[in-house]
Nucleic acid binder design. Structure first.
Lengths: 376, 376
DNA sequence: CTGAAAGCGCTAACAC
DNA sequence: GTGTTAGCGCTTTCAG
């Protein structure tokens, strides 16, 4: 049913590893120890767990609060005290308990990020940029995967809110009333990304999908294309793009825009199948707007298998400008989004809100670019 | 300098949005409210934050511990009490504070996952599967990105250990002595993934990269290839694969195996450049083993641009079996890893360890498959 | 610049 | 079945 298959060298096994004659390794963690000695082992809770602030304080001959200050506000402490305490920290291998710290200070230094998926680099790069940027300021990211559609969002949100994050990042602007309500009640900064509205819950870093659809329509019209069609996933933002696309075409008197919808997230296969359905339905487009580069590749594959010349007979427009697509498909035009910038700016916005700075742009449109590759 | 560029419709702007004449929307969150009313606003700390267990208890007319039991061990409570308490929870919109809970119970219900990156779907899918699976049992994932090379691992680890995760997942088996030490000291389950050793720190779910390299070598030899070469990234696991590859060839008397190394993570561009370097260096391989599908595509591109027929004159072997590659490059063979299974099994292993079950396989080899597509 | 006391919100252990 | 008493490990506030 496809171009794959054939020779495969399989190699599966569960290694019981009840080995008792260890390799001549000098590794301390090599065998020969009982389960109780391993991490997490039942009997491993000797000394009732980890070193505390008081332990360090005792060793350093100061009070616990001084140790706390050395860690969090060293400018309030003498250099000498700092040295002594640092020494004690190093000796004991003390790792501050952020749960306790967060509870006492009401600042968890945790930021939650809810995205549909990280399996495609679409959102993953944004999350990665966010994580990097927030990490520089001592924040960590709690990952929430809402799926397509964001059916799990409400449940996820409760689980996440329970950690008392200092901020929360959401993908998109469509949230259930319950979600909005809880978010408002939580009283923490909210950054919505990957979408646009002048009235976000709190702040927004994204771009308009309608505008993107509109821009693509104009672009294709400008290239002389007139028989436009759509192969798109049924996710909220893809639908917005399609709407913008259609609206722009309608403005030019083009109202017959065949469209097929595939389940989100779109894949090569569904893209290809979608194109097949489009063509089998009698459509003879000279341009197809796809909801992602991946879907576009499927469309491309189907077109090629039917002997349709791309971009000669057919322009294919993707979305996302995924890395691999750029090199590999000179025939594929696309819409470029600076996904890392979105994450970075979202982080900056979140930091500004968390530190309660005043100079905050509540809505930042990072824009997009329509990239034409068909002509090269 | 490539096949990209040309026509771009840019659309960038920062929308200041100091708008005061809101659209005729009925959204409660629309404009017209002061900063203090927004989430996270300075003056927003009315009622000193969120509802607590005691608030709920008061409303329900029971003691705090009873509310706690309803939430965590309902089997110890009368159905009637449960109903009353649930009602009070719903009325108040209570969200349990997991920081406090974690501190008191010494169970954070947090699992940390440290991977080099999630920008490629390589690790992202594993993390996603892990997140899904752990989520079913009420655990959340704290994401740590260690980068290439894992230079940030030690610092990251401290930040992460401070959250007192109930378990930790690490990519690879090569860790600094400090890392190993801290991990052992933490006394929590550790699952190492994406690699293989019979003596993991605690448990392991992965596969042998040497074996993979070995299998690829045998596969290519079996196809009649004799002039083998490598284009690989300088990451630990790619190097292991290369070593396994070379060792297998050496066993067959093939010792001249030209190899070029590119920085990790490999990209299309570096792959292509690497292939160029390989060829410019005088190598005339009839098969190239690449460290990833992405790199392999770059190699493919360079080969094609030089008029080398693939797979006729040259076999190209990737690694990872990324989705898009399967459809798009019938000439590209690869090594398939079930990344989601790895994440799922890692989650199961971790859960088993956290719940201290006895029947645990400490080392699970999930294997791989060499996929031949060149002949189709 | 340093410390003592109190308490963040929850759960473990033991009573009743 | 339910409540009481402590205390998790830290930071806040106020003294000195």
């Amino acid at each position: 049913m496809s171009a794959l298959s054939t020779g495969r060298t399989s190699c599966k096994a569960g290694f019981p590893v009840a080995r008792s004659a260890p390799a001549p390794s000098r590794r301390k963690t090599a065998d020969g120890k009982s389960a109780a000695e391993r991490p997490g082992g039942r009997a491993s809770s000797r000394s009732s767990g980890s070193v505390t602030l008081s332990d360090v304080a005792k060793l350093a001959g100061v009070s616990p609060i001084t140790v706390s200050r050395v860690l969090n506000r060293p400018e309030l402490v003498t250099q000498n005290t700092i040295d002594v305490v640092r020494e004690a920290i190093a000796r004991t291998g003390y790792v501050p308990n952020l749960l306790a710290g967060g509870l006492a200070s009401k600042r968890s230094r945790l930021v939650a990020a809810i995205v549909p998926t990280i399996a495609s680099s679409m959102f993953a790069e944004t999350v990665e940029a966010l994580t990097d940027k927030l990490g520089e300021s001592g924040y960590q990211v709690l990952l929430g995967l809402s799926g397509y559609p964001a059916i799990r969002e409400d449940g996820l949100l409760d689980a996440i809110l329970g950690r008392r994050p200092d901020g929360i990042l959401l993908t998109g602007i469509m949230h259930s009333p319950a979600t909005r309500q809880r978010l408002l009640a939580a009283g923490i900064p909210v950054v919505e990304i990957w979408d646009y509205t002048p009235t976000p819950i709190d702040t927004l870093v994204g771009f308009s999908h309608e505008k993107a659809g509109d821009a693509v329509a104009r672009h294709l019209l400008g290239k002389g294309r007139r028989r436009l069609a759509v192969v798109g996933a049924d996710d909220d933002r893809a639908i917005l793009r399609r709407n913008g696309f259609r609206a722009a075409l309608a403005g030019q008197g083009i109202t017959d825009v065949p469209a097929v919808t595939v389940p989100a997230p779109g894949t090569l296969r569904t893209g290809r199948d979608g194109m097949a359905r489009l063509l089998d339905g009698g459509a003879r487009p000279d341009a197809v707007f796809c909801s992602s580069d991946i879907v576009a590749q499927g469309v491309l594959a189907e077109a090629q298998s039917r002997g349709i010349s791309v971009p000669g007979d057919l322009a294919v427009m993707g979305f996302g400008d995924l890395d691999f697509a750029a090199y590999t498909f000179p025939a594929l035009s696309t819409v470029r989004i600076d996904r890392r910038a979105m994450g970075r700016i979202a982080a900056e916005t979140m930091l500004a809100r968390m530190e309660d700075r005043g100079d905050i742009e509540r809505v930042i449109d990072i824009g997009f670019e329509v990239i034409e590759r068909a002509s090269t």
